[in-house]
């Protein structure tokens, strides 16, 4: 997962329209995948730090809580129904959003396209 997140970080930096969409997004997002916990520090759209947890003292704006198999299916080139979107994972009961969901919604296109950045690898 750490490697995948590093790949996503690199692709984000190389995706000008996402950097533009994320220019007001300076937040920490928690990503929980199975038992692992990652803190993603975004600064003006750039992912400047990926810190592995667990941590009880790191504040974050919102969290995406899911499992590795669901994410793997989300990152397939043509995901099955429900696995094609993070809110689909929520609907399937394979993910949930915690924390300040309104901040997520205000930056929804940015965050959804960031999360999908690992999908290209499967296409290659």
């Amino acid at each position: 997962m750490r490697d995948t997140l590093e790949t996503m970080r690199g692709r984000l930096a190389e995706t000008p329209h996402l950097m533009r969409l994320g220019r007001l997004f300076t937040e920490t997002v928690q990503l929980r995948v199975d038992d692992a916990e990652y803190y993603l520090d975004f600064e003006k759209g750039a992912l400047v730090a990926i810190t592995e947890g667990p941590s009880r003292k790191t504040p974050y704006r919102f969290a995406l809580v899911t499992d590795g198999e669901a994410l793997a299916r989300f990152w397939e080139p043509l995901p099955a129904p429900g696995f094609h979107d993070i809110f689909g994972l929520v609907k399937l009961g394979r993910a949930r959003i915690e924390g300040d969901i309104l901040t997520l919604v205000k930056n929804l296109r940015f965050f959804k396209e960031f999360m999908a950045l690992a999908r290209r690898e499967a296409v290659q």
Binding site: L78, P79, H84, D85, I86, F87, G88, V105, K106, L108, R109, K112
Partner: peptide
Amino acid sequence: GEMGAALVSANISPH
């Protein structure tokens, strides 16, 4: 509008 578009994109098929 931008938030609504981002939300309803969940309903569009990857095909």
